[in-house]
Amino acid sequence: MPEPEPQERLIHHLDARALRGLSHPLRVQLLYTLRIDGPATASQLAEKLGESSGATSYHLRQLATYGFVADAPEHGKGRERWWRAAHDGTMFDDALFTDASPAVRGAIDMLMHEMATTHARELSTWIGNRHTWPEKWVQGTDMSDFTLRLTPRLATELNEKMHALVESYRDLPEVADAPDAERVRIHTHAFPITTD
């Protein structure tokens, strides 16, 4: 039997207009939750995130206006409205970080802080719950940091190589039916520091 072709990932390229669609912390959380946990209703998301269903409904509609989420009618029954993430991931346009508009620069800063908070929360949750996982999973995790002396060109090259390596592990055939396979979050952070 031939191996299935890997599905191409849908990536939303974030420009200044689309950034407005993510200009609220709850929208970032809603999109993240739909990408990680799959389709849900506004009420389900409200319960999961500790928000009112009115707030989640409003912000889901805003996310839909900017193309981040879409209806998932195959999940609904009756008048129930289900939502799904429209893309697998988001890439930033580098120009956002130097945009002439303070509003755009403020929005991208807010988004970056939300992402950093999410990464810290995920890692803290793992640390708090690792005792509930089998030993082989505890051994299969990593929390490392490195300090290198690099030029901007070499830092970019390193990031590209790390991303390519991670992508090479996506949708491996031997994982499809493996009984011990789980979803694994990979965080990468690479940034310059000041040394005195």
Rank of each mutant, 00 (worst) to 15 (best):
L10D: 11
L10G: 04
I11K: 02
H12K: 14
H13S: 10
H13M: 07
H13L: 09
L14C: 01
L14G: 00
L14Y: 00
R17N: 10
R17C: 10
A18N: 06
L19M: 05
G21E: 04
G21C: 03
G21V: 05
S23W: 09
H24N: 14
P25V: 05
L26S: 02
Q29S: 11
Q29V: 00
Q29D: 13
L31M: 00
L31Q: 01
L31S: 02
L34N: 00
R35K: 11
I36M: 05
P39M: 00
P39C: 02
A40H: 00
A40M: 04
A42N: 03
S43I: 05
S43T: 14
S43R: 10
Q44F: 02
Q44T: 06
L45P: 05
A46D: 04
A46C: 03
A46T: 02
E47L: 12
E47M: 10
K48E: 07
K48A: 10
K48T: 07
L49R: 01
G50L: 04
G50S: 04
E51G: 04
S52P: 06
S53P: 10
S53T: 12
G54E: 14
A55W: 07
A55K: 13
A55F: 06
A55S: 12
T56K: 03
S57E: 07
Y58D: 06
Y58R: 15
H59D: 08
H59R: 11
H59E: 12
H59P: 00
Q62A: 06
Q62P: 03
L63E: 02
A64F: 07
A64T: 08
T65A: 13
G67H: 01
G67M: 01
F68S: 01
V69L: 03
V69K: 00
D71V: 06
A72Q: 04
A72R: 02
P73C: 06
P73W: 11
E74H: 12
E74G: 08
E74P: 05
K77S: 15
K77N: 13
G78T: 07
E80G: 05
R84Y: 00
A85H: 07
A85T: 06
A85R: 01
A86C: 04
A86V: 01
H87T: 09
H87I: 04
D88G: 11
G89H: 04
T90K: 08
T90E: 15
M91Y: 11
F92S: 09
D93S: 15
L96I: 09
L96R: 06
L96G: 08
F97E: 10
T98R: 15
V104G: 09
V104M: 07
G106N: 15
I108Y: 01
L111W: 05
H113L: 13
H113T: 13
E114R: 07
E114Y: 02
M115D: 06
M115K: 07
M115V: 14
A116K: 14
A116F: 05
A116I: 09
T117Q: 13
T117C: 06
T117P: 03
T118A: 05
A120L: 15
A120M: 15
L123V: 13
S124W: 08
T125G: 08
W126C: 03
W126R: 07
I127H: 11
G128P: 05
G128Q: 09
G128E: 15
N129S: 14
N129C: 11
H131G: 11
T132C: 10
W133R: 13
P134R: 05
P134T: 03
K136V: 14
W137D: 12
V138W: 13
Q139I: 08
G140Y: 09
T141L: 06
T141C: 13
F146T: 13
T147K: 10
T147A: 12
